[in-house]
Design a binder for these strands. Structure first.
Length: 646
RNA sequence: GGCCACGUAGUUCAAUUGGAUAGAAUGACAGAUUUCGGCUCUGUUGGUUGAAGGUUCGAGUCCUUCCGUGGUCACCA
């Protein structure tokens, strides 16, 4: 039975005895640092049942507890808060319970049900970038946290290996590739394929620009100028005025905005998809490839397989460096057909309806959402189709899974809302346990990452730079005599990636991150290396401890700093549960930082190894060891490793 | 424009899910330790929690209305 339950029962008894009232639950919270005490009872919430002055009520309960509960030695009441003080023996017993438990804080698998966590899920036409890094770190960490909270977990991803994007790379490679391979160029496979995707875009833009200057392009431009599309593009502008005066030439005092050039730019981005689907030659060619692929054309499928494999090989290297892994991979090309099957079923059961052009839709207006397409008029699958198929396939493959977590950026909030609703409508009872782990974008100090402007931060490059900076700083410090070159490289990797991972994971997933490369490699303050340093320093102490510190000792009186560290350690189990409930690695990160701060303060004020009293020396060494273990465990949940020296 | 997030010290983030005087880090300044690793520790400085109302013992947190930022509103994924 945990402390809160034990105390709750006592308080309930106290209230029964003192005020003759029956209540079921009372609120406890951590005592704030500025007040004396170890746990706090909020008296205010009792006022509903017990009338009177909160201070008097608190005092009476406090007196009762000191009298009747042996772990409470003292109390004080501030306003409506009853702060209770535990005995030193109680703290010590708690510590040794934790000390004896190797993985203190984690829960052994208790549930028969499993959770599936999806993350990463990239397209196969481009290398991974900073945004994927956040996704991967979050997904991996949340999976580890859920595991530590006592659940079976499967890590998975859906690889978007099918579709127009990969066909674009294929077309460009066939046309301009001269048979290049990763081997022949020395490039990572994902980089090579990404280059051809860029090449396709360049060729397309060239063709598009030429077309705009052609007669027919100018005709479309004129049409564009006359359409009321203005309203959509510039909702803030008085449209009547704009249309009636042909503003692009006549409005003078906002020339930049209304200049012919600015409008042309608007037109260009507005008409792009339309052009791709109608006039574009290269667009037509790439769609032919997609059709051939869907028809199972041998040559096309062969090339598709070859280029996808290059990408997979490249991704594997990135995943390995990043330290993430998967239990099972799903490929869109293998699940979209199952999705189609269930669209057909849904049509029968009237979950979906068919339009005249034979496209299939789901009507969600009753739920306050729109109508959503689930199958194109030509019968081909859309994004939603394959997501339906994938979800169902997963439950088929893993019958013990009854809950799934999707780690996907918040620009897809609406998509997942719809997906979960559709699955519910299709009658799957597990659909109520689906969670979209939605996270904010990663911005750079200069603004958003844009591939067209070349401001995308490549995942491999970033990891390399972080390791490099870690090397520079570590070499200055020179604490590494006796380390071989490979050991050193491993350490730089540990530190560099530790900095990166902590920097990203310490912020709440749903908030957007401002990624400042300079700050991310910082070693001081609330950073990964700061925490790693504390761990390494404890290891140094443990190496020097030339006495037996494996057995319990008894201490007469605890130092305040010792008590604070013990209290912080005690919070670990609840913290894991809370982090799992909230799908938030940030909670683990912040906990670890608090623990380290508490420990450093302890370390600074008391002596450990040079302490005169043997019992105290042993106890403080044990306390240090437990802190180190906990750092290692909690950092493990974040996917960050800790060094023995640094 | 409809819908959905978010808005907290100069900056980057917290705040035990409605609790006490809103905390850290960073920056700047002052100090401690110089024999367990100085990548440490202790202070000082810095806030009308975007604004205004409301709900109650109590609001950064919940409700309403504005303001600002971002996302989304495809037979793209």
């Amino acid at each position: 039975m945990n402390i809160k339950n034990q105390l709750q029962n006592q308080v309930i008894k106290a209230i029964k005895q003192l005020f003759d009232k029956d209540i079921e639950q009372v609120d406890f919270q951590e005592t704030r640092k500025d007040f004396e005490g170890d746990i706090t009872l909020v008296v205010f919430s009792l006022l509903r049942y017990v009338k009177g002055n909160p201070v008097e009520i608190g005092t009476k309960i406090g007196e009762y507890l000191v009298e009747n509960e042996e772990i409470i030695t003292n109390f004080n009441v501030v306003k409506g808060f009853l702060n209770l003080v535990f005995t030193d023996e109680f703290h010590l017993t708690n510590f040794y319970t934790a000390f004896a438990e190797e993985n203190f804080g984690t829960t052994k698998k208790s549930s028969k049900n499993a959770v599936m966590v999806e993350y990463s899920s990239p397209n196969t036409n481009k290398p991974l970038h900073l945004g994927h890094i956040r996704n991967n770190l979050l997904g991996y960490s949340v999976a580890e946290i859920i595991k530590a909270a006592g659940n079976k977990v499967y890590k998975t991803q859906i690889i978007n290996d099918r579709g127009i994007h990969i066909c674009k790379s294929m077309l460009a490679w066939e046309r301009f590739g001269n048979g290049e391979t990763p081997e022949s160029t020395g490039l990572k496979g994902d980089k090579l394929v990404g280059n051809y995707y860029v090449r396709f875009e360049t060729e397309f833009q060239k063709e598009y620009s030429e077309w705009i200057n052609s007669k027919i392009g100018q005709l479309e431009f004129e049409k564009f100028k006359e359409t009321p599309i203005w309203e959509k593009l510039f909702p803030d502008v008085d449209t009547n005025y704009v249309i009636s005066t042909t503003p692009m030439t006549k409005v003078e005092n906002n020339e930049d905005f209304f200049s012919n050039r600015a409008i042309l730019k608007e037109f260009k981005s507005y008409f792009k998809d339309n052009y791709f689907n109608t006039y574009s030659i290269i667009g037509r060619d790439v769609k032919i490839i997609l059709q051939k692929w869907e028809a199972g054309d041998k040559e096309t499928v062969k090339l598709w397989k070859k280029m996808n494999q290059w990408v997979y090989d490249g991704f594997e290297v990135t995943y390995k460096n990043l330290g993430v892994d998967f239990d099972k991979l799903y490929y869109e090309s293998e699940t979209y057909l199952l999705g189609k099957e269930f669209i057909a079923e849904g049509l029968k059961s009237k979950v979906f309806f068919k339009k005249e052009d034979s496209s299939v839709w789901c009507d969600l207006t009753d739920e306050g959402l729109d109508k959503k397409i689930v199958l194109r008029s030509d019968g081909t699958a859309v994004y939603m189709t394959q997501d339906i198929g994938t979800a169902i396939q997963r439950i088929k493959d893993y019958p013990d899974v009854n809950s799934m977590v999707y780690t996907v950026g918040n620009e897809q909030d609406y998509h997942f809302k719809v997906l979960f609703l559709i699955l519910k409508k299709l009658g799957f009872d597990w659909a109520k346990n689906l969670f979209h782990l939605s996270y904010g974008m990663v911005d750079l100090p200069e603004g958003k990452m844009k591939s067209r402007e070349g401001t995308v931060v490549d995942a491999d490059d970033l990891m390399f730079q972080m390791t490099d900076t870690a090397r520079e700083i570590s070499e200055e410090l020179g604490k590494l005599e006796g380390y071989s070159d490979t050991e050193k490289e491993e350490l730089y990797n540990t530190i560099g990636l530790g900095a990166l991972k902590y920097y990203i994971l310490k912020v709440d997933p749903k908030k957007r991150i401002l990624f400042n490369p300079k700050e991310s490699i910082d070693f001081q303050g609330n950073t990964g290396p700061f925490i790693q340093y504390t761990y390494a320093r404890i290891q140094s102490i443990l190496r020097k401890a030339d006495f037996d510190f494996s057995k319990e000792v008894s201490i007469n009186e605890l130092h305040d700093k010792e008590k604070n560290v013990i209290k912080q350690l005690q919070l670990f189990p609840d913290t894991i549960q809370l982090a799992a409930k909230n799908y938030s690695p940030a909670i683990i990160a912040n906990y670890t930082y608090d623990l380290v701060k508490e420990y450093n303060s302890f370390y600074q004020t008391v002596t450990i190894l040079s302490c005169d009293d043997l019992e105290t020396k042993i106890f403080r060494t044990q306390l240090s060891q437990k802190v180190a273990n906990t750092i290692k465990l909690s950092f493990g949940l974040l996917g960050i490793s800790v060094p023995e020296r640094m």
